[in-house]
Simulated assay, not measured.
Amino acid sequence: MIPSRSEFLPIRGLRTHVRHWGRVGAPKIFMQHGWMDVSASFQFVVDCLRQDWHVIAFDWRGFGLSERSSADTYWFPDYLADLEAVLDHYAPGEAVNLLGHSMGGNIVSLYAGIRPARIARLVNLEGFGLPATRPEQAPGRYAKWLDELRTRPEMRGYASLDEVAARLQKTNPRLPGERAAFLAGHWSALDADGQWRILGDPAHKMTGPLLYHADEVLACWRRIAAPVLWIEAEETEMWRWMGPKEEARAEIDRRRAHLAEVTARMMPGAGHMLHHDQPELLARMIEAFLDGAEVPG
């Protein structure tokens, strides 16, 4: 494995963990993980990159080794502000190569439309967005949020790292044992009770009080000026929240059509965690795209 090194930055009042691979001074790629994931999740892709890169990935607030918020709710705009602070620190005034997976894909795509001049090339890995909502859903959503504030969620404990690895493989049966073992050591930590617990604030599991406004998101997507590489996994089930598969396919295609310059590819032999399932192919796709060459697939 290519070794990584950790750095901690004060970002908007929270101690934020940043992971680096490669040579400082090499061309940069910023990689942002998804919900209940960590920056180390990109290790397998980094190992497969063939060119000289400086890969920078940080743990979102309340995930991995980054500090948890003292507030009882995580607000999505904070992710955008944290991302901008990190980019300003490591690439001031530069247009950057930016990649995000799942929740991270949603965040980086929003940011690319909000700050189009900051992005050279954008890679979205299954960052489709959330289900569209209707105004009449607001009272119920607020009520659910208030109800959940009364009983805070907890993270389950595991007796060993082997149990954590088994949990990862249960969620993703394609995950080889050695990769599961590596991820388990970064995805969890031993607590004072001798239990291994996932490095994610349980507050992330709570329902957010605000509705998801797809029209506002797509307004941001339409302002993205950078070329976009859009990668889906053939065996993903992320479409299920949109309804029957035919309806989901139509909605995903409708959203993608708002991107001005997009290269769409389907990843064979992979589920939603495609950076774990097919890291070599994903690395080839990323490097071809960043080079302006034909993207395989």
Rank of each mutant, 00 (worst) to 15 (best):
M1F: 13
M1C: 12
P3G: 07
P3T: 11
R5W: 03
L9V: 05
T16E: 02
H17D: 00
V18D: 04
R19L: 14
V24M: 10
A26L: 04
K28Y: 01
I29V: 08
I29G: 00
I29K: 00
M31Q: 05
Q32V: 09
Q32L: 15
H33A: 04
G34W: 06
D37T: 07
V38Y: 04
Q43N: 06
Q43M: 03
Q43R: 09
F44Y: 12
Q51I: 01
Q51K: 14
W53P: 01
W53G: 02
V55P: 00
F58C: 02
G62I: 04
L65Y: 13
R68S: 10
T73D: 07
L80K: 00
L87F: 06
A91Q: 11
E94H: 12
L98A: 00
G105K: 05
L110M: 11
R118C: 06
R118L: 06
I119T: 10
F128T: 13
A132V: 09
E136W: 13
A138Q: 14
G140C: 01
Y142H: 15
K144H: 03
E154T: 10
M155D: 13
G157F: 07
Y158M: 07
A159H: 13
L161D: 03
E163D: 15
V164G: 05
L168H: 03
K170M: 12
K170R: 14
T171Y: 12
P173G: 04
P176D: 06
G177C: 10
A180T: 07
G185L: 04
A189W: 14
L190E: 12
D191I: 09
D193M: 09
L199W: 08
G200V: 15
D201N: 05
P202L: 09
A203T: 09
T207F: 03
P209G: 02
L211R: 07
Y212P: 00
W221R: 12
I224T: 13
A225W: 08
V228Y: 03
E234K: 10
E235N: 15
E237Q: 10
E237A: 12
M238N: 13
W241G: 09
M242L: 15
G243D: 09
A248M: 09
A250H: 08
A250I: 07
E251V: 12
R255Y: 02
R255H: 01
A257W: 09
A257L: 08
H258M: 11
H258P: 06
L259H: 05
T263Q: 08
P268K: 04
H272F: 06
M273C: 14
M273I: 10
D277H: 05
D277E: 01
P279Q: 02
M285Q: 14
L290M: 11
D291T: 09
D291C: 11
P296R: 06
G297M: 10
